[in-house]
Design a protein around this nucleic acid. Structure first.
Lengths: 175, 175
DNA sequence: CTTTTTACGTCAACCATGTTGACTTACTTT
DNA sequence: AAAGTAAGTCAACATGGTTGACGTAAAAAG
């Protein structure tokens, strides 16, 4: 369990390392959401709308209940946000073909445009961080984040690291 | 800018990789805060209280304005939460010695105890993820998170990777 | 020593987004 | 025909954010 990872690794170092991670997660998330939040405020929307727009954009034709599972909020809470997005024509509903009780959700052109602008900000931030940290760090980042996510949702992600060269042992790659 | 990182890395792959990171960050943060949120609810507190307790515990004697800078909320918003924590004796204030306008904040024994219980949950989740991902992944994780954080707050963290063996190029270290 | 600035607190109103609980409608499954 | 499921709706409430205005005490500047 404790394993011989390093001689200079007493318990308080482990504790310190974990606290550092906790804090960095807080700061990173705070700043990660900061950009979109500002844009959203200008058009009278909030972070909740962003999340809906994001996941509908990502999963065109998603059902309401699938969306609820992802967001982990109640349908009443989603309803307020979703109805607004439908009223404002960011999202359209179409009845499911196999099951006509379902309302399949899709972004309109207006929705796609907003999604793109919101996500561009976050993508840029992440891309900068990836560029500075290097490809191997990115793989580590994904691997750890993956482990933080509840087991039931991990399967949403393939984190095997296919996109980078792996066979050769190149590490610490600046340049 | 685009750089020759890998032959099999067209633009849509980059895009896909970034979206994956965005989503993982959402899921990880959602689950990372889930545990403490439940505990807090039982004693009538919320996530905002947790943040205050955490950062006061981490920085004993912190001033109100320093706390505000970290949390990026208004003093009125902090006030509600902080007053409650002081009333309930999780936190004490003492006037600053050099500057007696300041209220230096410190956890009481009760506060320390709560902080410990809350953070234990998060620490365990992170520790599990670290263990599964391995030491090198952890370093990558920290490096990327560091880059996501606004430059002005990056200096709070030393992310040079001192805790693991680094000189020798050992990579992919299971066992 | 007076003035200005700073650190902190407070009152009030408002907004976004989460909750629970009860009930309805339409459709699918048994 | 009955039961179950997908989705919507109404209502009441809690948390935690915002802006704006104002107050007090102490420090810093003139």
């Amino acid at each position: 369990m404790v394993d011989v990872k390093s001689v200079a690794n007493p318990l308080f170092l482990r504790e310190e390392e974990l606290r550092q991670a906790i804090e960095m997660l807080f700061f990173a998330y705070r700043d990660f959401t900061g950009g979109p939040d500002e844009m959203l405020a200008e058009i009278g929307l909030g972070r909740a709308h962003h999340r809906v727009i994001y996941f509908v954009g990502r999963n065109p034709g998603i059902t309401v209940s699938e969306l609820l599972k992802i967001l982990r909020i109640t349908k009443q809470s989603l309803s307020r946000v979703l109805s607004h997005l439908i009223d404002e024509e960011y999202i359209t509903q179409t009845p499911g073909e196999r099951d006509r009780r379902q309302r399949l959700l899709t972004l309109t052109a207006k929705g796609v445009d907003l999604e793109r602008r919101l996500t561009a900000d976050q993508r840029e931030r992440i891309a900068d961080a990836f560029r500075r940290a290097g490809a191997d760090a990115v793989q580590g980042f994904k691997l750890v984040l993956h482990g933080i996510i509840d087991a039931q949702d991990r399967e949403r992600f393939d984190v095997s690291g296919g996109s980078t060269h792996h066979p050769a042992v190149r590490v610490g790659g600046r340049r």
